[in-house]
Design a protein around this nucleic acid. Structure first.
Lengths: 118, 118
DNA sequence: ATATCTTATGAATTGTTATTCATATGATAA
DNA sequence: TTATCATATGAATAACAATTCATAAGATAT
């Protein structure tokens, strides 16, 4: 007999209940997931990493990540729609930057997590 | 004339350079992206949110997120392969839990980011 | 050993998403 | 206005990933 005692099983049920009551709404989960998805493609993550060094225009982002203008523009749109980056126009150019400190924190925490293993 | 001065353009070039030199390797970017991808599907994110309340066995996870056992098992594999969750066997059951504090931090920062807008 | 409970996996189908190409839009300068 | 530079977008194809179903494997009890 190696499994949990009846008392432990009861606490498991409690945890199922607390997981159920504290579960965010369908909408919140969808939005969160979409935002993680936005930074889950290497091409877009690379853009985000480039922008974590400072504001850049589309052409410079394209240089920094390597690729073509159209692809980068599509990728930036995804990042912007998901509030990962923000944009401001400056003459003919559009300058992109990381949306806020939360995103910066996520990047650095993710990098730390990377160092923990391997 | 509304665009940046020549001096500003020079600093832009500097930022391209610093983005290029500080850019993580292809492998690091791939790993990071894969980890974000693991938590970027609503079904898997939901599992992670459930586990953020405490360790659960597969059956209870299945109850907490709604779905079928096979799907949940596949989803758990993806999460585990990407070090988002960890597993330990307890008799017939396998108990899953959030891999470490980095992941917990990421979840809470992402939730905060959600509160900032909308 | 056999039965039962719990979890994991392979293969196929279905559904999604990324990238490309061509072109459109926005901004400035001449 | 027209030309040019910078960025964005629509549509299509091509690459990828999620879910399902059937079944296998691991663990314990009888």
């Amino acid at each position: 007999m190696f499994s949990d005692s009846p008392a432990d099983m009861a606490s498991h049920e409690e945890r199922v209940k607390s997981a159920l009551v504290s579960m965010p709404s369908y909408e919140e989960i969808s939005t969160l997931a979409a935002r993680f998805k936005a930074i889950s493609e290497p091409s877009r993550l690379k853009i985000l990493l480039a922008l974590s060094c400072g504001e850049l225009c589309v052409e410079h982002i394209t240089q920094a990540v390597g690729g073509n203008q159209s692809a980068v523009s599509h990728q930036l749109k995804t990042l912007k729609d998901n509030k990962i980056v923000k944009a401001r126009r400056n003459g003919k150019q559009v300058m992109y930057s990381v949306s806020d400190e939360h995103i910066m924190t996520m990047i650095s925490v993710a990098k730390e997590h990377l160092n923990c293993d391997e």
